[in-house]
Design a protein around this nucleic acid. Structure first.
Lengths: 143, 143
DNA sequence: TTGCTCCTCACGTCACGTGAGGTGGC
DNA sequence: TTGCTCCTCACGTCACGTGAGGTGGC
């Protein structure tokens, strides 16, 4: 839970990206069998770094990804092929969302600019957004 | 590609949405076993209409959905739980794309309007959208 | 009547996680 | 040396598609 991201206290890369855990520790942190992590890698679900001696080294981000895989497989019953595609789509969705957010901000600026130019205020409507996809396992209790 | 949608020549609904195929025909069109269609329905992957006598009736859109399911299961090896979530995400993705497109258009209009305001004022109203789309998987695990 | 529909149950196949077994490097 | 890592192979479990079996309505 600690140091979520971009905690770069001294010019080093984000601590979340540093490959620090050997496979046994990573498996313990994710609550999995070490062999399971090897399977996930072979299936292309994650790609931990390797040491010079060819041993795997997992980052904090890798651990989070492992937990996400666990959610999808155990709680939602999705197989690994599905998890792989879902995670790709998730990245695309997040990218799209950032794009829409940026566009909206620009639009707000444009609106302010227009309003101030004619010194007239007649607020635009606010368009409520549709409810988002709620995954089955996220209904009910939080966290 | 023929009569894709909104072909309402006489007040009827889109031809793609009309429930016209009984299960045996739908299965044949989709290249599946009829029992498979029943399984998909039970798993919540599609919901064909029912006749007064409780028989299933599939629309052209249902057939297309069946083919999409087939792609994901047979070619990609994704199980039904995965297919279900993927299709939900796909709808979200398409919605997001339409939204971004609309925003871009509004932004273009706003730019044009700002420019023309300098000469003469003839403005439509601006509709600022407030974006707070936060997908479940993007929420932080806690505050 | 026939030929469809509805449903449930059973079985074969396959994906996946777990574990054993044997190897090599720090 | 020990305790890890690497890999492959085998097995138990489960999801899924197919089929059989029995029912009912048009």
């Amino acid at each position: 839970m600690a140091d979520r991201h971009t905690r770069r206290n001294d010019g080093r890369r984000s601590s979340d990206d540093r490959a620090v855990y050997v496979i046994s520790v990573a498996a313990e942190l994710a609550g999995m069998h070490p062999q399971t992590l090897r399977i996930y890698e072979r299936k292309g679900l994650l790609a931990p770094q390797r040491t010079a001696g060819n041993s795997r080294r997992y980052s904090e981000r890798d651990i989070e990804r492992l937990r996400a895989i666990q959610e999808l497989t155990q709680k939602a019953g999705i197989n690994l092929a599905g998890v792989k595609l879902i995670m790709q789509m998730q990245e695309r969705l997040e990218e799209m969302q950032r794009r829409a957010q940026r566009l909206e901000q620009e639009l707000t600026y444009a609106a302010v600019r227009t309003r101030s130019e004619r010194d007239r205020s007649e607020g635009g409507q606010i368009v409520p957004l549709r409810s988002v996809v709620v995954f089955p396992w996220e209904r009910g209790s939080e966290a």
